[in-house]
Design a binder for these strands. Structure first.
Lengths: 199, 199
DNA sequence: TAAATAATTTAACACCGTTAAGCAAATGTA
DNA sequence: TACATTTGCTTAACGGTGTTAAATTATTTA
């Protein structure tokens, strides 16, 4: 009976519709606004229907996470294939990674746990600026012979902050990596950046 | 009337109790488990009372964020004061930052939006390993003369990932920094790590 | 002691994720 | 064709959430 096939195709279609609707809601209103009833509204069904396709809300989140990793893998692979020199390959792959993060920021968020709360944190909370002040003072002191501009100091600060915040994020989210390796990365990264300040 | 003072002191006390109870709940069950009724239970009141002290749940979250920044600023300042050489100061400050993140991980989470979801992501989702595979292949190729161990390759991978993930997180959470500066950090960081592979 | 004010709770609203029961249409069977 | 069964879908419900308004109790003031 070919009608079975048609029905299976329709089922697959609404499954995709659920995922598409979910991603659209997230893109428009953020992850915290994603609700089963809202998804149901978008696909013109009622909420319990969704449980015929996904065991729960988390399964939808997971499926979108998987989708993110598939896109990221494809982008990085394509970037790699465009070059032959390993150095160029690395550069291209990380640039692809970077571009993916901003082209699909909602997917990146759920893949790596970046929670976007308030953008103007520093404005409404002056305390948030103290670390920057403390560190950039010292950076300026080290670079005093170079007479760096404010932007240059800022670049150095963000280089520091990025590697440390990145390492921390990774270690907070997944506890697989050994502490030894992490400490090694932290130490070499910090001393590397410090020497680069005067170089 | 001194009784006014006493009442004011009591009010201040329950305000602190609310914050303490909130932080304790978050430490025990995570941010997603924090609810007004649970806080009320902990301080032995009913939920609406909390609105006499905080305008809503987000205000509590914000106050804990501020608390986090105050502790971080204190720790970094103390670390700085322990040294005179700027290089040592930087190292000590970033180490203090690092230690704070793990000593007060819940505060760090809410301060910088690190969402801890599932730790065993790679195990239940093989797709999540593709970026690592792609990149470490190339790293090994570049470092072929050094015959690096798996751990050494891993360190290099995490160095890359940390700085890029950190930069992305920062840019996703706060859009203040100029794109130019960010691109500069990204480019210098990547090329710096690449040259360090063969050095 | 009576009135006024403050402190606290109860009740309610609208939403959430999720499950169970019910209904109606399509299908299989005789 | 008539009946039984399965399927697709909805309604109703449970226990939870943040939040607000009304009711109640306790405290202070006159």
């Amino acid at each position: 009976m070919a009608s079975k096939d048609r029905i299976l195709r329709l089922k697959e279609e609404t499954r995709i519709n659920i995922l598409d609707a979910s991603l659209q809601i997230v893109k428009e209103e953020g992850w915290q606004a994603l609700s089963m009833r809202k998804i149901a509204d978008a696909i013109e069904y009622t909420a319990p229907i969704i449980y015929e396709y996904f065991s729960n809300k988390d399964a939808i989140r997971m499926e979108l996470t998987r989708k993110g990793f598939l896109i990221l893998a494809r982008d990085m692979r394509q970037a790699k294939e465009k070059h032959r020199l390993p150095g160029k390959q690395l550069e291209a792959m990380w640039l692809a990674y970077w571009n993916f993060a901003f082209a699909e920021r909602e997917l990146y968020q759920v893949m790596f746990g970046v929670d976007v709360n308030c953008c103007e944190l520093c404005e409404i909370m002056p305390e948030a600026e103290v670390p920057y002040t403390l560190v950039s003072e010292v950076i300026e002191e080290i670079m005093v012979d170079k007479k760096p501009s404010e932007d240059e100091v800022c670049v150095k600060y963000y280089t520091f902050w990025s590697v440390i915040h990145g390492l921390i994020s990774i270690n907070l989210v997944r506890r697989t990596t050994s502490d030894e390796i992490t400490r090694e990365v932290l130490k070499t990264a910090i001393s590397g950046i410090i020497t680069s300040l005067t170089a």
